[in-house]
Amino acid sequence: MGQQLGFYLNQQFCMGCKTCAVACKDKNDMEIGVNLRRLTEVSGGGFAKVGDTYVPEVFAYWIGVSCNHCDHPKCVENCPTGAMHKNPEDGVVSVDQTKCIGCRYCTWSCPYGAPQYSEQRGKTQKCDMCADYRAQGKDPACVTSCPMRAIEWGPIDELKKKHPDAVVAVHGLPDPLMTSPNTIYTSHKSAVSGGRK
């Protein structure tokens, strides 16, 4: 295989604006309910009563996920037709629309919700890291959309080198051992895995 591609997200600066999700939706013409890039809010904590005031001990952050183009993609393993496949050149997992029969097994197989079934198309849709844009020498739509410049893409080894602090597991993500994902995060201060601050 060539170089495995992946995403980097600077989660500490992600404000959950969903611009990436909508840019992706527009670029890929997705119907309502089908979102190839998704943001999930995680929040909690509480307020301590101090005298007649409340002191916040609150945390909140967003987790952005499209597809992690995993090393061990369960969706590919479980797909009965071979429509879901991992590109041997760059490790990008995508679904061949000419082969997908819409059995939805892949949507049961991904802990990140990456494969999304389109009722209107009768087929699964998912992030292919904007293969068409990459072929034209452009960046994926989500990357260039982010108002905070918090999303990057590239060979995962290079991203890891560029962001030595980044991790695959932030609090709220499924266990990375399930599929060995290729998205790394600079953790939000409250999302450091194993302990929220």
């Binding site: 037709t81 071979g82 082969k99 029969i101 059995c103 079934y117 389109s118 198309r121």
Partner: peptide, 15 residues
């Protein structure tokens, strides 16, 4: 009836 695109059902044996 479960399939979104039943015309390609023959491919289901490929994997």
């Amino acid at each position: 009836l479960h399939l979104g695109s039943p015309l390609g059902a023959y491919r289901v044996l490929l994997q």
